[in-house]
Structures are given as C-alpha cells and as structure tokens.
Design a protein around this nucleic acid. Structure first.
Lengths: 127, 127
DNA sequence: TGCTTATTTAAGTATTTGCTTAAGTAAGTA
DNA sequence: TACTTACTTAAGCAAATACTTAAATAAGCA
C-alpha cells in the first residue's frame, strides 16, 4: 500500500489510535483463529451441516448429501474443511463415516442454532 | 448434480432423512440470512473493524485505515459490505463519516468480542 | 471561486472458493 | 479373488473475494 491517500485531520486522537493498534497486535492470533472459524460458519451449506450435526448427533456424508440435495464429493469437501478447522470430528463404523460436532466449539455455535430455530438471540442463554 | 455416486446402504433412516429435509426447507431463509452475516464476520479485517467499533463506539475510515495499516479504499469497501449487510451504520459530521455497530445484531457479535478479549466462552480460560 | 480533505466508487487483477467429473482408497461381500 | 459400497482426493473451472490504483464526489476553507 502506498498510502498517498492519507487522512490528516487534526481531530484524530493519536493516543486512541495507538492504543487500538497495540490491542490489535496483542490479539492478532485470536483474530486469526476466530475469523477462520467464523468463515467456516459463513457458508450456507456448512452452516446447514453444522445445524444438522447438532440436531442429529451424527451423520454420514451420504445422509448429508441426501438431505442437502448435493453431491457427495461436495459434502465431503465441506466436511474436510470443518475437520481441518477443528469444529467437527468423525468415527468409522465399517465403511461408513459418522461426523459429529466437536465439543470444543459448541459454545460458539449454539447461539447460531438458536437463531435458526427461531429462539431469538436476545434470550440466547441455555444452561 | 448427476448423483451417480449414490449411497444406498440400508442402515439409513429414511424417516430421519425426510424430517431433516423438511426442516432445512422450512428454515431456508434463516440459513441464508445468518450465513451471510457470519460470512461478514469470517474475515479477519472485518472482524477487527467490528471489534474496534465495539470498543471505540465509532470510528471513521481514516482512523481504521491508520489502526489496521491498510489503504482507505480497502477499509471503505469492507465498511460498505457491512453496511449493506446491516451490521454497521454511520453518521456524517462535516466531511468525516463515523461508523458504528448497529444495535440490531450486537447480541450475535458480543460473544466474539469476549472471545478475543480472552474471556472465553468455554472452560479454556487463562487468568 | 478554486484548492484541500475525507471518503466513495470504479476498473483491473491475483487469489480463493465451491462446485463438477473422474480417479483413488479401503472396507465389506460373493 | 473380484465386485460392491462409502467415501476421499485430485484436477479443472466459473464465480466470488479482497486488494490495488485512479477517478469521482462532496464538504470545508482561502
């Protein structure tokens, strides 16, 4: 970035800017991690898969393909992304592979499911 | 999709599949809306902007450009997406435009800010 | 009025995404 | 052993994304 288009208004608070910059630097890793998880949920197909896994406990690629009306490789590739992103896991039973949500990030995901179920956000606790 | 690669195992529960399919159809709009909001948060730059707006109440593109170390047009385009997505709004003061979070979706966003601040939702705290 | 400042918009581009089809793997089954 | 079945992986491609630079807009200010 050349940044020739600099804003030089004197109302800006350099102290505030600097504090913000430090905070960003300090939390760089958190932003990276969280945004990558949210990117996984920010796709309609994957959000549906996550919702279904939450509701049905576990499902195989075949079932998901059937429910979502899309090809098995397409589903499989979404599952791989989420497995790599550490929000789903699987177990094998014969040649069938059952996917499920990892407990680790359930707290992040649960409010999303509540929204979809129509239980509005403002009441989003469920203990 | 040609779906030649169909799974035909007999263990599948057609009743379960069908219920799921109905549920997906019934909530189609919710999935579309929520995933599009989550897609906005699933970008590191935008997540940072949202975090900063939450913390500083309001900021102009110029400040954000300065804090994030990126060009003003780049910031402006992210802000536009989020404005279109209805999660930020703005007010004008002279030639300066101050962006802020829309209250409407604060409940969805707040847990993200808590995670970044280290107040983790789950058990993995470290204080 | 003309010049500067703050911001947006537009056009161009490299990268990423999400599908497709085809091929590969691995666990039953005959 | 060979043939299914369930799934993954690879390659290819159209569309979307996120930046870049340059031009446009619009609000002060001299």
């Amino acid at each position: 970035m050349e940044n020739l288009n600099v804003c030089i208004r004197d109302k800006a608070n350099p102290l505030q800017i600097n504090e913000c910059r430090n905070k960003m630097a300090a939390n760089e890793d958190s932003f990276t991690q969280l945004s990558s998880i949210l990117a996984l949920t920010g796709n309609q197909v994957r959000l549906k898969i996550l919702y279904l896994l939450n509701q049905e406990k576990e499902l195989c690629p075949c079932d998901l393909s059937d429910i979502l009306g899309m090809s098995i490789p397409a589903v499989s590739q979404h599952l791989r992304k989420m497995k790599d992103g550490n929000i789903v896991e699987f177990r094998k039973e014969g040649q069938t592979i059952f996917y499920s949500l990892k407990v680790e990030h359930l707290d992040l995901l649960h409010p999303f499911f509540s929204i979809i179920n129509g239980k509005n956000l403002t009441v989003e606790r469920y203990e």
